[in-house]
Write a protein that binds this DNA or RNA. Structure first.
Length: 608
RNA sequence: GGGGACGUAGCUCAAUUGGUUAGAGUACCGGCCUGUCACGCCGGGGGUUGCGGGUUCGAGUCCCGUCGUCCUCGCCA
């Protein structure tokens, strides 16, 4: 306690966020960064900042060295807590009723003029923020995000432990997989010419843990995929990964519903409604045009093909003749100008590939818009009934190949969500999307690919029998979708080696490759594997979405740029020739010239 | 790999049709001020206009290339 303190001890007794009028009269020591300094000549005010808050420190005229303080200096201040006059209370701050009158000051560390002004409200460019991430992270908003993320993870961990799940770590240096995303490779020094891969997910290991009888496994797992980035994708990311034995879909759903309900309650004070609705993949596409629909609002897609056939509208009829669809949605009674529709909304629909967007201001008398002259007479009333439209409602249509029509109207739907303020951002609507196709055919590669991954169980264990069309097979995979974001996916797995062999066969993975890449899994499945299934939740996305962010960058302490580089530590970077030699690698092509340039640039950085 | 936007002082931005010495706010440095909390006032330093080339009497501005950042399509089992 205070009695044990030596004079001149700069170590803090309190944080910058905790002093209140109850502490008045106490001698305290605070540590932190100089957030702002106000020099009034003879009296100086310093707002001292740490993770917990801001406290105003008052320095009298005797502190001449206070004049040397500047932003982001690190100091220790010992002084007395005093209550402020009523006229001087700062109601904006939790510590605004008191201040600390300094008796001694220790400058622990000086700061150069920082490239990021932590106290400013306007943000520097993203690359500056990433290069000086440790400064950006001093901003309370970012610290809040990281703390939010930590609370989510902590609550999930506790919830899984209550459910008797065991946290098990799996290797980061593992085996390259032929299917799926591009692997990050790590050369082996000990085995010349051989490479580890960083895991895209712990998929196979968690299945082996089920074979091992662990029954219920979970892990906060780092995953790596060497693919191009997006606002919601980083090359290294984190999943809350789990797997359980002797289960079917509903068992996995039930665990996650309990875990997420507990997590949202404990970390955010939000009560989720469970069970989450289940939506078949085909139905999601038909009603929303997307396999990750935002179900918080309507504007659902309507098939108007039967109606279109009664018209003489060549665009609609032509699309149907070519085997396409005519889909529409009712945007409601919205005040859009002709220009907003024909240029604005049209451009939105074009994002989905639509060549045009037909529109109609509904009215039983024929209405207005590009569709009006084809909606004369009784056709007007019929169309209104189809779209549940009232007079004055704006209806939008795309006629094209099914995938284009759906994708385009999905774009329109999401555009209207923002434009018309159709959703409450604090409303979290989860949906399980089920019954995905097992395989999709790739026209370029001329072969079948797993829609989810090759270990996903088919609905029909016999896989349709010999000669069956793989495109007709349903899988037992599922996605969890929240507010239009895919938060995670999982499946019931194949636990029988002969079924797994058959899937590899359909995928065109021959017996030799099967044995080489997956022999250990097939063998494991042959020693008595329990039926099992699991799921992995994208933690970055979950944290971002629940923090009200549309980019995962700001819930990651040290994120990478769109070109998968770390601007702060300048990774990736060339390495010395001897390092390459150790791992038996020789550079070729543009890698040679690039590496030479990189080495030259590094040499320029040596002090002059 | 494709498309779009951007790159000017430490930071955020401005700079007319291609035209004189590239400006402002903020930060920083110095001076003044005993109650501020975005303190105020006075003064000062600070620029390879991302980099390279071209057109021009003249380029921050126009053209070509290149590097980087963001968004996006492809990609992401």
């Amino acid at each position: 306690m205070a009695a044990a303190r030596r004079a001149g001890d700069w170590r803090r007794t309190h944080t910058c966020g905790e002093l209140r009028p109850a502490h008045v009269g106490q001698t305290v020591t605070l540590n932190g960064w100089v957030h702002k300094r106000r020099d009034h000549g003879g009296i100086y005010f310093v707002d001292l900042r740490d993770r917990y808050g801001l406290t105003q420190v008052v320095l009298g005229a005797q502190f001449s060295e206070a004049l040397k303080l500047s932003g982001e200096d690190v100091i220790g201040v010992t002084g007395t807590v005093v209550v402020r006059d009523a006229s001087n209370v700062n109601k904006e701050r939790e510590t605004g009723a008191i201040e600390v009158v300094a008796e001694s000051l220790a400058i622990l560390s000086k700061a150069k003029t920082p490239p990021i002004d932590v106290a400013a409200s306007e943000l520097p460019a993203v690359d500056t923020r990433l290069k000086y991430r440790y400064l950006d992270l001093r901003r309370p908003a970012l610290q809040k995000n990281l703390i939010h993320r930590a609370r989510l993870i902590s609550a999930m961990r506790a919830a899984f432990e209550r459910e008797s799940f065991v946290e098990v770590e799996t290797p980061v240096l593992t085996k390259a997989t032929p299917e799926g995303a591009r692997d990050y490779l790590v050369p082996s020094r000990v085995h010349p010419g051989s490479f580890f891969a960083l895991p895209q997910s712990p998929q196979i290991f968690k299945q082996l843990l089920m074979v091992a009888g662990m029954d219920k496994y979970f892990q906060v797992a780092r995953c790596f995929r060497d693919e191009d980035l997006r606002a919601d994708r980083q090359p290294d990311f984190t999943q809350l990964d789990m797997e359980m034995s002797f289960v079917e879909e509903e068992d996995v759903f039930a665990v996650w519903e309990r875990v997420l309900a507990a997590t949202f309650r404990e970390a955010m004070g939000i009560e989720l409604v469970t069970p989450f609705p289940r939506l078949r993949h085909a139905e999601a596409l038909e009603r929303y045009g997307s396999d990750k629909p935002d179900v918080r609002f309507g504007l659902e897609l309507v098939d108007v093909a039967a109606w279109a056939k009664k018209t003489e509208f060549k665009v609609f009829l032509g699309a149907l003749e070519r085997g396409g669809r005519v889909l529409g949605l009712n945007a409601g009674n919205v005040a859009f100008s002709r220009k907003e529709i024909e240029e604005g909304l049209n451009a939105v629909a074009a994002l989905g590939g639509a060549k045009g967007l037909a529109w109609w201001k509904a009215d039983a008398g024929g209405g207005t818009g590009s569709l009006a002259r084809f909606a004369a007479g009784p056709l007007a009333g019929e169309l209104m009934q189809l779209l549940s439209a009232k007079s004055g409602d704006l209806c939008l249509f795309v006629a094209d190949a099914q995938s284009v029509a759906r994708k385009s109207l999905n774009e329109v739907r999401l555009h209207l969500r923002a434009k018309l303020n159709l959703v409450d951002p604090k409303h979290y609507a989860f949906t399980w999307v089920t019954h995905f196709p097992l395989f999709t055919y790739d026209e370029d590669a001329k072969r079948w690919f797993s829609e989810h991954h090759p270990f996903t169980a088919p609905e029909d264990w016999a896989l349709g029998g010999p000669g069956a069309d793989p495109g007709q097979l349903m899988s037992r995979s599922y996605d969890l979708v929240m507010n239009g974001w895919e938060l995670g996916s999982g499946s019931i797995r194949i636990h029988r080696s002969e079924v797994q062999e058959r899937v590899f066969e359909i995928l065109g993975i021959g017996p030799e490759e099967r044995q080489e890449k997956f022999g250990f899994l097939l063998e494991a499945l042959s020693y008595g594997a329990p039926p099992h299934g699991g799921f992995a939740l994208g933690l970055d996305r979950t944290a971002a979405l629940t923090a009200g962010l549309d980019n995962i960058r700001d819930v990651i302490a040290f994120p990478k740029t769109a070109s998968a580089a770390d601007l702060m530590c300048q990774a990736p970077s060339p390495v010395r020739p001897e390092n390459l030699a150790e791992v038996h690698i020789q550079l070729a092509g543009q890698a040679l010239t690039r590496a030479a340039k990189g080495a030259a640039a590094a040499a320029d950085l040596t002090p002059k």
